[in-house]
Simulated assay, not measured.
Amino acid sequence: MVQSINKIAKYSDADLDKFAEQLKTDGICIIPQLFERKLINEWAEAFANLFRERQNQPGGLAPREVSRYYLTLPWVAPFADVSVFANPVIMSILKRVFWQEYVLVQLGADVPFQGSDYQETHRDFRPLFCDQIVTPLYALAVNFPLVEVTADNGPFQMARGTHVLPREEGLKKIASGEIPMESFYMQPGDVIVRSPLALHRGSPNRTSQPRPMIVMGYAMHWLHTPKVDLTVPRDYYESLPIDIRQMLRCEVVEQLPKEKMETYVNFKY
């Protein structure tokens, strides 16, 4: 946890308040250089090996349209890292916008390859009730890339402020240019926290290298999230402090399964 303790010292309460306010108003905030490059390199190497394994397993990858895939990360090193999924900076922001207990429900990755295209502009969740009632922040996605994200390799694109608009109104404002669809370029170590209700899309990766983007999903404790799942080995789970255990919505198993069948296929609203 040394890295996390050092990193939170970079940000004052005023900084954290600003991140939280941006999240409420824009539906997104960017935390620069939260994670060390060494950590990102370790994840990138492990992820490359994992992806090759999953490619050879039936159902090991969930399709995300052409040449784009999603996969759940196994709860093993280096991915099972308290300094990442319970990072104090991220937790401090979440506590400022979630007014009840929240849980981690998702740890996965989105990977566009060469040949991918623009996704249909979409949301990841439906509103709680209807478009005419503004939905508070009840779920958040935390993203960080394992490579530099440039204009050429498929940057995440989002229209700020559309998380509080009816879907059709947001789409009209994007189409007219009133609200731009913004590309988010990132360095390894940068982190985005965003509302899944904000209208967004993936863009084409025109390079020969994949662009893996990690996603950690957090949600209010009462939200039903059947499309994503966490499976955690019992020995690791029982080694965690009680407050961290309570934050994980997971299945605790004696041993992780050798193969993973991805079920998170429908993802657009």
Rank of each mutant, 00 (worst) to 15 (best):
I179Q: 05
L137E: 11
L73I: 04
G59K: 04
L107M: 15
T207V: 10
T231E: 13
E53L: 12
S203V: 03
F85Y: 15
L199W: 00
R68I: 01
A198N: 13
I28F: 06
V149T: 15
R37E: 14
G108T: 04
Q209L: 14
I133S: 07
V111P: 09
T25S: 12
D26I: 00
R234Q: 14
S176L: 02
L165S: 02
I214K: 03
R167Q: 13
F85M: 01
S203G: 07
P204S: 01
F51P: 01
V193R: 07
Q132R: 08
V82T: 10
S4I: 05
I8C: 03
E238S: 10
D229L: 12
F113Y: 15
G202V: 11
P63F: 02
G59S: 04
K268L: 09
V193E: 06
P210N: 07
P257F: 13
P188M: 13
E148K: 15
Q209C: 05
L256M: 08
K268S: 08
S12E: 09
P233H: 08
G154C: 09
E120M: 13
D17F: 01
C130T: 10
K258A: 15
D81G: 02
V2F: 10
Q246I: 00
L23Q: 04
A44F: 07
H122C: 05
W75A: 15
G202L: 11
G59D: 02
L61Y: 09
V252N: 02
R234N: 07
L107I: 09
D152K: 13
A48P: 04
A44N: 14
T231K: 14
Y185W: 12
I133E: 05
I214Y: 07
Q255R: 15
G177I: 09
L71N: 10
Q132G: 03
P166H: 01
H122A: 02
H122G: 05
E101T: 11
Y185D: 04
K227A: 14
D13S: 13
K227E: 15
L165P: 03
E251F: 05
F184A: 08
Q246R: 14
T121C: 08
A198H: 07
G217T: 10
M158S: 11
H200D: 09
G202D: 08
I31M: 06
Q55D: 08
D229F: 14
D243G: 00
L71D: 09
V215D: 11
S195D: 15
A20G: 03
V105D: 08
A141P: 00
E36L: 09
F98E: 02
N153G: 05
L223C: 04
M1P: 14
P32D: 09
L107V: 03
S83M: 02
Y237T: 04
S183I: 04
L146A: 05
C130V: 03
